Computed example of a mutant assay.
Amino acid sequence: MRLVLSVLAVLLLAVPARADGALQSLITPDDKARLEQFDAVKAKALADARAQGAAADVKVLEAALAGTPMAVEGDFDAKGKWKCRTIKMGGGLPLTVYAPFKCAISDDGSGWFLKKTSGSQRTQGRFYTESATRMIYLGAGHIWDEPPRKYGDDLKENQVAVVERLGKNRLVLQFPKPAYESDFDLLVLER
């Protein structure tokens, strides 16, 4: 019995704090549709950005997406401060790379919670487990001088992203069909 309890304790400590199970009851039909288009939208946006973007910006894009998805289980802990860079593809311009801003991930008891804390366009929301190497982010955007929103408060401000850990300390949120300005966005978190 002691062995079983010890094994359970180790397993509980090894799993990072993320919300799970609630995703299907929370995600809107519009955001489900965005995720269904993910691969096609990403492929087109990347092809256009690589073909038409400035060479320096394409280099930043390639570095952001380099690597093989790593496990978000085990000893990985996302909590803490991060530098975060927005990269926008499509819409008016093929590729726009912004300077890094500040983000933070906390655990509020329900799982990992992201806040972009600097820059004019901000987001906050929660991570949900999709697989051992992939999470889904449900968040809401707001402008720096507006009160932050929660996912579902204002449907046009909802945000959905596929999240992959592409380096030891790099998370990449990939937003298909964001509501404003572009066709595909990245929010690259590094520390």
Rank of each mutant, 00 (worst) to 15 (best):
A43Y: 04
Q159P: 03
G91H: 14
V4M: 03
S120W: 03
V188S: 00
G152S: 13
D57S: 02
R85G: 02
V41M: 03
P16N: 09
D183I: 03
E181K: 07
Q159E: 07
G91M: 13
I27N: 09
A71V: 12
K168Y: 14
T68D: 11
G67E: 05
A179C: 06
F113R: 00
V160C: 14
A63K: 11
F175R: 00
G80Y: 06
G92S: 09
G152H: 05
I143N: 13
V58Q: 00
K116D: 02
P16H: 07
L11F: 11
Y180S: 12
G90W: 03
W82C: 01
A45F: 05
A33D: 09
T86M: 01
A19N: 08
K150E: 10
K115A: 14
F113Q: 03
D75T: 06
L65V: 04
T117P: 05
A161I: 04
K116W: 04
Y128G: 02
A66Q: 09
D185E: 14
S118H: 07
E130N: 10
K42Y: 05
R170P: 11
K59C: 01
R191I: 09
N158Q: 10
G167R: 03
L23W: 04
G67W: 07
E164S: 05
W112L: 02
A40L: 10
K32V: 14
Q52V: 01
V60I: 13
D39Q: 09
F113L: 15
V97S: 00
V15R: 12
V163D: 10
R18L: 14
L155S: 10
V162L: 04
R170M: 14
F76N: 01
K79S: 15
E164Y: 13
C103M: 06
R122A: 12
K115S: 13
K102H: 10
A56G: 00
V162I: 12
D75Y: 01
L12E: 10
K32W: 03
K115I: 07
S118V: 14
F175G: 00
R18W: 13
A54Q: 12
A179L: 08
L46F: 11
K59M: 05
L138A: 05
F101A: 12
R126A: 04
V4R: 08
A43M: 08
I105W: 09
A19R: 06
L61F: 10
V162S: 05
P16Y: 08
E146Y: 02
Q37E: 13
G67C: 06
R50L: 09
K168M: 11
E190Q: 08
A22N: 07
Q37Y: 04
K79T: 12
N169T: 12
G141C: 02
L93Y: 05
Q124G: 07
F113V: 00
R149I: 01
K88S: 09
N169R: 14
L26V: 06
R170F: 15
K42G: 02
Y128V: 00
A63L: 14
D31C: 09
P94K: 00
L166V: 11
S118L: 04
K116H: 10
A55Y: 15
A49L: 03
A179E: 14
E73Q: 10
A33R: 15
G139L: 13
T68Q: 15
V72T: 07
E157C: 04
D30C: 11
L3M: 08
P176Y: 13
R50G: 01
R149Q: 08
V188R: 00
K81W: 04
S25K: 06
S118C: 05
S110T: 11
Q174G: 10
C84A: 15
E130I: 03
G152R: 03
G53E: 02
D154Q: 11
